[in-house]
Amino acid sequence: MNIIVEEKQVTAKQGELILGEMTFVHANDEFYIIDHTGVSNEARGLGVGKKLVVAFVEHARAKNMKVLPLCPFAKAEFEKNIDYADVLFQN
């Protein structure tokens, strides 16, 4: 499985098959907002959503940005994993 971080989305692919995607927006020069995470029916239960979050957290760290997870799935992942606290946007 390949995880690709692009300008407005993170995509999980197996060959040409899209297993899942996460969309985000730049709120400003300080933080990103995750607004959607989706996984295909064929990929449910394979941890694709978690892998999307991990890849995006690494991207945010590399860019020295914070993350505001508004998507229910991403928000739950941030609440479960204290290792993401360094990139969590606090308003």
Rank of each mutant, 00 (worst) to 15 (best):
F89C: 07
E42D: 15
H26W: 05
V53M: 04
E79L: 12
L17N: 14
L17W: 11
R61W: 01
D35S: 08
P69M: 08
V39S: 11
F56Y: 03
G49M: 07
P72E: 12
L46R: 12
A12H: 02
Q9P: 05
K8D: 11
G38K: 11
L19R: 01
L46D: 08
D35Y: 10
A60S: 05
I34S: 03
I33M: 04
L17V: 09
E6T: 09
N91Y: 14
E79F: 09
A85M: 15
P69C: 04
T23Y: 05
H36P: 08
I34Y: 10
F24S: 04
V57L: 01
Q90W: 08
K66E: 11
L19Q: 14
V48M: 12
E79Q: 10
V5K: 09
D35N: 15
V54N: 12
E21N: 15
K63H: 07
L52Y: 01
N28F: 02
E42S: 13
A27E: 12
S40Q: 05
L68E: 15
I82A: 14
A43L: 14
L88W: 10
G49I: 04
G38Q: 14
M1S: 13
V39G: 12
Y32E: 02
L52N: 12
G45H: 13
T11G: 01
G20L: 04
I4A: 04
A62H: 00
G47P: 06
